[in-house]
């Protein structure tokens, strides 16, 4: 296995040398590079482990930082409503900037590397997460607030015990959208000089099997992280509020799938 890896490694470097005496079908397939070499991919899946972990690291760090910052912004603007348009505007402009441009704009400031990629990706997640926290908090029914006040809660208690728990579905919805898009956008982190699946694709840009494998891993990562967040929410919110935004097909089953598939993709 190790010997096979050693002979095959240079081939997958794209422009690198081809093996002169192909000894099996998989090697032939990679040398010809006319289609996706499933056999080779299965045998050599270990070479994609490091890029996948780098990719995952970038995504998790960006979403965690993004959530922390957006959460702080949302709490800050919760009782100071006049801050909301400003925060929405700033995060909106950041979101409009193409990621590849943002990566390159940061290069002279923060240099090439994972840090630059994470900063840019973090800035990217702010808009979606911030907007969803704000929406979630403002969708809290007035009756729930009144009930909390009636029980003698302070503003702080009201926020942490009533408003935030009731806003969890919207907040998690924002996290899911941010996570899924970050997994996809992180493929462009190569332009910030970071690694990950994008670097793997870019460095072997003509290698068909590599492109398909990396693309498939990225999509799978998005699906798995999305599902994990969904399950986390399901555990967190057992009392689930009924707030259907769109009248859906009847039946529990369809409802479950609708929630699993995720929040409806409209931006306000």
């Amino acid at each position: 296995m190790l010997v096979a890896l050693a002979t095959l490694a240079p081939i997958a470097q794209g422009s690198g040398g081809f093996v002169r005496e192909p000894d099996d079908a998989a090697t032939n397939c990679v040398a010809e590079n006319t289609t996706v070499c499933v056999g080779w991919a299965i045998d050599n899946i270990d070479r994609y482990v490091t890029p996948t972990l780098q990719h995952l690291e970038m995504v998790v760090l960006s979403v965690v930082f993004g959530f922390a910052i957006a959460f702080a912004m949302a709490l800050l603007s919760h009782r100071r409503r006049w801050l909301v348009p400003g925060f929405t505007g700033v995060t909106g402009v950041l979101y409009t900037l193409p990621s590849i441009a943002l990566f390159s704009l940061l290069l002279p400031v923060t240099g090439r590397g994972t840090a630059t990629a994470v900063i840019a990706l973090t800035l990217y997640t702010l808009q979606i997460i911030y907007r969803n926290i704000v929406t979630g908090l403002s969708n809290v029914p007035g009756e729930a607030r009144d009930a909390g006040r009636g029980m003698g809660m302070t503003d702080r208690q009201l926020l942490w015990r009533v408003e935030l728990p009731l806003a969890v579905p919207e907040i998690v919805a924002g996290l899911r959208i941010a996570t899924v898009s970050t997994v996809a956008i992180a493929t462009l982190a190569i332009f910030a000089g970071a690694g990950g699946l994008g670097a793997e694709i870019y460095n072997n840009i003509t290698f068909k099997t590599g492109i398909v494998v990396c693309g498939a891993i990225a999509i799978a990562m998005a699906i798995v992280l999305d599902a994990l967040l969904f399950l986390a929410q399901a555990r967190l919110v057992r009392w689930r509020r009924q707030t259907p935004t769109v009248a859906g097909p009847p039946g529990r089953f369809a409802g479950f799938f609708r929630r699993l598939l995720g929040p409806i993709g409209a931006r306000p």
Partner: peptide, 19 residues
């Protein structure tokens, strides 16, 4: 709508060029 967000841009472009 949700699947669209999961499409990795670089992989998509590279896929088009290669295939």
């Amino acid at each position: 709508g949700n699947a669209g967000r999961a499409i990795p841009e670089l992989a998509l472009i590279a896929f088009m060029a290669a295939f």
